[in-house]
Design a protein around this nucleic acid. Sequence first.
DNA 1: ATCTATTTGAAATGAACGTTTCAAAGGTAT
DNA 2: ATACCTTTGAAACGTTCATTTCAAATAGAT
Lengths: 191, 191
Amino acid sequence: MPKTETFNKETVIKQATEVFHNKSYSLTSMQDLVDATGLNRSSIYNSFGSKLDLYMECLKSYRSNFKCKVEELTTTAKTPIKAIESIFLLNIKTNVTNNLGCLINNCTSEMANQEAAIKNFLNNNHENMIQLFKDLIEKGQFEGSINTNKSSNQYALYLLNSLQGLSISGIIMNDYKHLESIVKTTLSILN
Amino acid sequence: MPKTETFNKETVIKQATEVFHNKSYSLTSMQDLVDATGLNRSSIYNSFGSKLDLYMECLKSYRSNFKCKVEELTTTAKTPIKAIESIFLLNIKTNVTNNLGCLINNCTSEMANQEAAIKNFLNNNHENMIQLFKDLIEKGQFEGSINTNKSSNQYALYLLNSLQGLSISGIIMNDYKHLESIVKTTLSILN
DNA sequence: ATCTATTTGAAATGAACGTTTCAAAGGTAT
DNA sequence: ATACCTTTGAAACGTTCATTTCAAATAGAT
């Protein structure tokens, strides 16, 4: 029957993600994507639809990648607070080495008010993150390892806010130690 | 002698700032700026140089505006901690009403890795903000109203990080109360 | 009124953009 | 081999972009 797809869709998304991460959505041209993926222009349109569609795929891939790592961290961590810490450290490790910030947070600044589909994704992501932190906080508060000065919801909002801040801090600051210090100070409130 | 400038440069910058804030740098076209300012295309180039030059002017104006308000707040505030609080509240008040985030933080995501002049400005801004918080913290620690669990530098990094987070949070979250809660939790560490 | 330097308007420039088109090439199954 | 449908390459499409150009209008100083 037909000729089958010769390229690996996941690989292409990975390559495209890197470009989008490096240059932002607006500053990434279709030519950049052609160059980075080695694919033909038509193949990209055939397989992904449009530049925006491909971008959305990259966002989803980026998030599911993050989710995987987080799941691993939370299951291996000894305490909820250690789990939270390792999520934060994962974040600065991936953001300080390249000074690019988090793809999703960059997207928020750039696109949240421009594209409804993007806004939807971001809202969804936000809720997921809040839930993630809320669960961990509740677990810690139940165990007694996290204080109950604030509700799990208040702490979740606080933690996510700090994590988002680290995305921007990671773009400007080059010193890993400074970012580590921020994490330490941020989490010290929970004990 | 010559015909003099008929328009007010500051007004033009204000109008341009609004456009850049609404649409980001990349998504703002020269036509958008012509429409928003009422100026002729040539006049913009004559007076400001290029789109990027005008953008830089807007960033500077935005920052000096912020600085003015901060100066007023810090001089009228009864305590350093109240001063810090009012800076945070000013921030969420200006960012939650429009869901646009902070112009400078948006710029960080979008442009920090694209334009050296911008990166320079952002680094400078970062240092200024750190110094602002550091001074307030030191004052509070000297007076005894702020604890010494962390150094003024560590607290300054922590506070700026949270403030940057609020810029992103303000884009996604619509509930002013939630942002207020974040501020409250963030500052509770200082007492 | 005249000169002079500037602003203005409108059109033009040339490059880059995202997307489409379509004939040719390519691989799979009959 | 042949038929089938996909991928591929290259060119072209129509827009939009930032910027330039330049003659005409404009206004302060002489």
